[in-house]
Design a protein around this nucleic acid. Structure first.
Lengths: 246, 246
DNA sequence: CGCCTAGTTGACCAGGTTCAACAACGGTGG
DNA sequence: CCACCGTTGTTGAACCTGGTCAACTAGGCG
C-alpha cells in the first residue's frame, strides 16, 4: 500500500478515536503534531538511534520487535500490527533495549517525541489512551510467557494463531478465520524459542489434525472452535471490545 | 516489619520522590489520597474482585504475579519488590488477568482508584512517573521472554539472581552480593517453567561451579563478575539509574 | 514423637535440538 | 525458454535436555 492511499488527516487521530472520544480541542492539538510517513521493504530494520527522538506508528504492514543474543540467536518479543506504536517506550525511557524489523512492506508514521509529549501532558486523557495500549501490550507479553512456560509447543503455536486472528479481525484486517501470516518458519522459531525443524514438524501435526491450513503465507483456521479449545485461547487479555465512556 | 515502623506520610510520596521532584502542590494532592495499610502472611493470595477498585503498593515484602493454567500448573510472570504497584493495570483496564500472592510477610497500601485517577489526570507529571514504572516492568518481562526462549536453563537462573540483586541493591535492600531469596524450588520452577527436580539439579551445578551459595533462603553471589558474565546480565533494561530532570 | 514441607537422588522416557541432505519455489540473467 | 541461485520448507537419524515417577532425607514445629 502506498502512502497516498492512506486515510487523510493525522494518522494518530485514527488510532486515538478507537480508544477515546476526542474533543474538538484535543483533535486540533493532535492535528497540529508533526509527522513523516515512510515506506519500508519487508525484512528491513527500522533503525533507531541509541536515544530515539521520535515514535513510530504502524500504518500498514507487520513489524516485529526482537533482540539478538549471543551469536546469531534472535528472540522475537512482539508482533506489531497497524495502529500500534512499537517504540512508545522511547517517549519516557532514555534508551531502547530492542530492535524493530518489518516483516512485510510497511508504512510507518514517525512523530517527534517533543511535540507528542507536550500534547499528552496538556491533554492527559490522550495519554491515558496510549497508556492503555502499553498495558495491553504487557498483557500480550504475559500470555507469551505463560505459553513458553506452561503450554505444549503445538498449543503455543495454536494460541498465537488465535491471538493474531482476534487482533486482525478487530482491526478489520481479517475475516472468515483466515489471514496472511507473513512469518517464515524461521520467524516462528524465533518467536517460540524452537528450532525451525521442530516448527516444521509441529505445523505438519496441526495440519494433519485439520486445525490449520497453511500454504505459503496464507493461513486458514477451518475449525475455529476446536482450535480455540485446543489452544485454551481466551481473548479477554486483548481487551478488544473495550471502549471507555466519554 | 509492622506498619508502625514504616516511614510516616503517604506511602506513595516515597515512591514518587524516587522518580520525579514533587512540587508542593503535587505533594499536597498525593498526601490527600486515601489509603489503607494491611499486613499479609507469606503465601497468601492478595484477593481481587473481578473489577478491582483499588491499587496496591508494596511497602515491605515480596509478591509474585501468577496465573494458573490447566489443573495445578502455575506460571509466575513477575516478582514484585517494595515500591512497586503490581496491579497498576487495574487503573486503566477493566479486569485483571492474573493473580497476586505474597512470598514473604508483606505490608501493602491499598489506594482507591478513583482518587488516584483524579490526581493523576490533574498532575500529568505524576502519571508519567508511574507510566515509566509500567514500561520498566515491561522491559523486565521482555528479558524474561528472552531468557525462556534463548538462554540455557542455568543461564536463566543466574540471570534472575543477578536481576534481583540489582533491583534490591537499588532499593537499599541488599548489599555485598547477598540477599534473602524467599522462593522455594517450586516457585523457581514456576518462574522458569521447569520442574522442581530440574531446578534442584541446576542449583547444585551453579553451587559446584561456585557461582552461587544458597543455603536455606540466603543467597550469596561470591563471584559477581563471573556470574554476570555467565548470565550475560546487562542491567540497562532495569533503568535503575534513571532520574528525570525537573 | 510425628507430621508436614522443602529439598535430594535415581531410573526411565519424551520432547526438542542438531546436523546433514534434499525438495520446492521464485527470481534473475543468458 | 532454460539454467542457475538463494530462500524456504521437508525429512531422517543421533543426541541431549529436561520431565515424570517414585522413593528417600533434612528440618521445623506442635
Amino acid at each position: 500500500m502506498n502512502p497516498a492511499s492512506l486515510p487523510s488527516g493525522h494518522p494518530l487521530i485514527h488510532k486515538l478515536e478507537r480508544l477515546v472520544r476526542l474533543s474538538p480541542e484535543e483533535r486540533r492539538a493532535v492535528e497540529g503534531l508533526l509527522f513523516q510517513v515512510r515506506s519500508f521493504e519487508p525484512r528491513r530494520d527500522v533503525t533507531h538511534d541509541e536515544a530515539p527522538t521520535q515514535c513510530c506508528l504502524v500504518l500498514t504492514g507487520w513489524l516485529c520487535r526482537y533482540k539478538m543474543v549471543d551469536e546469531g540467536r534472535r528472540q522475537i518479543m512482539a508482533l506489531h500490527l497497524p495502529g500500534e506504536i512499537p517504540d512508545q517506550q522511547g517517549l519516557y525511557l532514555p534508551t531502547m533495549d530492542y530492535s524493530l524489523c518489518t516483516l512485510t512492506m510497511s508504512t510507518l508514521a514517525f512523530i517527534p517525541h517533543e511535540g507528542l509529549r507536550s500534547v499528552l501532558s496538556a491533554y492527559p486523557r490522550l495519554g491515558t489512551a496510549l497508556w492503555r495500549d502499553v498495558l495491553v501490550e504487557g498483557a500480550i507479553l504475559r500470555q507469551w510467557v505463560i505459553g513458553m512456560g506452561q503450554r505444549s509447543a503445538p498449543g503455543r503455536i495454536a494460541h498465537l494463531f488465535c491471538e493474531l486472528y482476534a487482533r486482525l479481525e478487530a482491526l478489520g484486517l481479517a475475516a472468515n478465520h483466515r489471514y496472511e501470516l507473513p512469518c517464515t518458519q524461521y520467524d516462528l522459531g524465533d518467536i517460540f524459542g524452537l528450532s525451525t525443524v521442530h516448527i516444521n514438524r509441529l505445523l505438519q501435526d496441526l495440519r494433519s489434525a485439520h486445525l490449520i491450513e497453511l500454504k505459503g503465507r496464507s493461513l486458514a483456521l477451518p475449525d475455529w472452535d476446536r482450535l480455540v479449545h485446543f489452544a485454551e485461547f481466551d481473548p479477554t487479555y486483548l481487551f478488544l471490545s473495550f471502549r471507555p465512556a466519554g
